[in-house]
Each structure stands twice: as C-alpha cells, then as structure tokens.
Design a protein around this nucleic acid. Structure first.
Length: 297
DNA sequence: TGATGTTTGCTACAGGGCCC
DNA sequence: GGGCCCTGTAGCAAACATCA
C-alpha cells in the first residue's frame, strides 16, 4: 500500500464529486485524467484497474486513483452498486509515499511530546479496506451539498474536501496504532462488540448480552463501562444513531421506517434519542444537506 | 383531513454504590 | 465475582403541531 502525502496549510482544490448508483449492470469507462479521484464504496462490488493493478472494491473500501495513469473497469458490477466519487487537485507539495515512510513519520510525530497535533500534512492511502463510514458519510454528504450550492465563496468546497480527507487520515492513523497492539486471546470484548453490532437492530439489552456471554448483568455492566468508557446502552444507542444518520443521508425512508429498521418499537422514542445525540431532529438532519449530485460519473 | 413529526409525562429497568 | 437497593434514564403512550 502507498499513501498520498499532501500539505494542507491551504486547502486542496475541489474539482467535482457525486454519489453514483448503477441502475443496470455497469462497467467503469477507460480513461486518463489530470487529477486525483477518490472512490468510497457504499454497496455492491466494483472491479477496476489502474494501469496493470486490479482492485475488487466492496462496502467500506477506499481507492485513490492517480493522475496521468490509465484506469478502467475489468468486469461488470451488479445493478444497485453504489459509491461516492470525488475529483480533486493537489498542490506541488503532494507526493506518493511508501507505507514504511508514512508509518515512520506518524510514529515519530506521536512520540514527540511537543507535537500536539501541529502537523500540516494528511495521508490518504491508495487502497484501504473496511473504513468506518459513519462520519465519512456525513462529511461526504456536506461536500455534495456544498458542491451543488451557490455559496458566495467557492472556497467552501475546498475546505469541506480538506475536512473529509483529514477524517480519512485520522482513521488510517488509528489503524496504524491498533494494528500494533497484540490482541489478548482471552479477551471477550471484541467478540461481544461484534455480537452487539450484528444484533443491534433486534432490541437487545444488557440482559440479552449477559445471558449470551454467561455473565451476571451487574458484573457485565461494570466490565463494559471499564473497558469502553461508556455504558452498554450508550454504546448500542451510539451504533443505532450512526446507522440512522447513514440511512437519513442515503435513503428515502421516513423517520418511522428508519426507526423500525433499527429495531425501535416506538418511532417517537427514536426521535427523542436522535435529538438528544445530534441536537437536531431526524428531519432537520436530513434537510440540512439534501442537495446532491446523483448517478453521474 | 390524514399522515408524519414533535413534545411531554409516566413506568420499568439499567447502572452505580455499597457490601459480602 | 455477585447480590441488594436506590437513582437516573430508556422506552412507551398520549396529546399536540405541522404539512401536503
């Protein structure tokens, strides 16, 4: 894997972006462009190659295509395949860096007590698997909205683009750090978090989880809070609200339908919870960034 | 006027403190 | 590691507001 290192003392330059959803079996066109293209998969599988390198992209995957290199689809994607695409220009300071150099620079910066986040560079991987799409979805939605708005200053899209790339950089650096930690084989927490994620739409509670993992509910509540810094209920709600934001951004489902999709028996309670977390009602959240550029590459 | 969204108040249960 | 008990809040119901 390689990384695009870019200086963001001033924002990068936005070209255009969109949210593509194929209405039929689809093949990416063959072309060479003069700017970077970032692809973030939402649904389905895309088969694309850059020069001779072939990539099979699935939900949560990111691919950065470089300028002046030939890219084309090498197989058809199914109907309904969906992804965000974004074209941008870099300033002269941008360069492609290998993984060792990128990791070394991050490690040196993190070990410096005087560093304190004062870095003007971002690192975008050329290929990245399993991104956390929660925040990326929201930031991309804002960028889509700004790109279709007649704002007084067009710099708004450049800053919004740069904010999105900073979020991707943060997730990449977090993966650097977590991959260094050696997992404890007796640690039940990862399995528990996975179980909660799978069953979060089934109205689960502390009682269900304690029964599933053979703990008393009192012990499990303390264990979970100690390890995660939040109660299990707070964690479940965080997952549900994150999923709700995705559905509000990427579907035409009503508040009621989204509530039921997430396992809320009462859609009124979902609304109350959403407002508590976001300081906005679901409708206000959806309407805040509703102007998007759909199905166009 | 019906569908959808929002607010408010009540009840059951989760979680923390304390103890064994 | 687990039980008991109290407090805060998640979950639910009803009423009200808004919109097409």
């Amino acid at each position: 894997m390689r990384y695009l290192k870019a200086d963001i003392s001033s924002p990068l330059i936005f070209s255009n972006c969109g949210n593509f959803t194929s209405d039929y079996r689809w093949l990416h066109m063959e072309r060479i462009i003069d700017n970077y293209e970032l692809i973030i998969m939402n649904k389905g599988t895309m088969y694309i190659q850059q020069d001779d390198e072939k990539y099979e992209l699935k939900e949560g995957d990111l691919l950065l295509l470089e300028p002046e290199r030939k890219h084309k689809g090498y197989d058809y994607s199914d109907k309904g395949t969906s992804f965000y695409w974004l074209h941008f220009f870099c300033n002269d300071s941008c360069k492609i860096q290998n993984a060792f150099d990128a990791r070394s620079e991050v490690a040196i910066a993190n070990s410096n007590p005087y560093f304190n986040g004062l870095n003007s560079s971002i690192l975008i991987p050329t290929i990245c698997k399993n991104l956390n799409l929660d925040r990326i979805n929201v930031l991309f939605r804002q960028l889509l909205h700004l790109s279709q708005s007649a704002y007084y200053t067009k710099h708004s899209v450049n800053y919004s683009l740069t904010a999105l790339l900073i979020e991707i950089t943060e997730q990449v650096i977090l993966n650097f750090n977590s991959s260094v930690e050696k997992p404890n084989e007796d640690d039940i927490l990862p399995e528990m978090l996975q179980w909660i994620k799978i069953h979060m739409t089934q109205n689960i509670s502390l009682r269900n989880v304690s029964h599933e993992f053979n703990f008393s509910k009192e012990y499990l509540a303390r264990y979970f809070k100690k390890r995660m810094g939040m109660s299990m209920q707070q964690y479940i709600n965080y997952l549900r609200i994150s999923k709700a934001k995705q559905l509000l951004c990427n579907s035409n489902l009503s508040t009621k339908e989204i509530a039921h999709e997430l396992g809320f028996i009462d859609d009124k309670y979902f609304l109350k919870l959403f407002k508590k977390h976001e300081n906005l009602t679901p409708k206000q959240f959806k309407n805040a960034y509703n102007m998007t550029f759909i199905n166009n590459v």
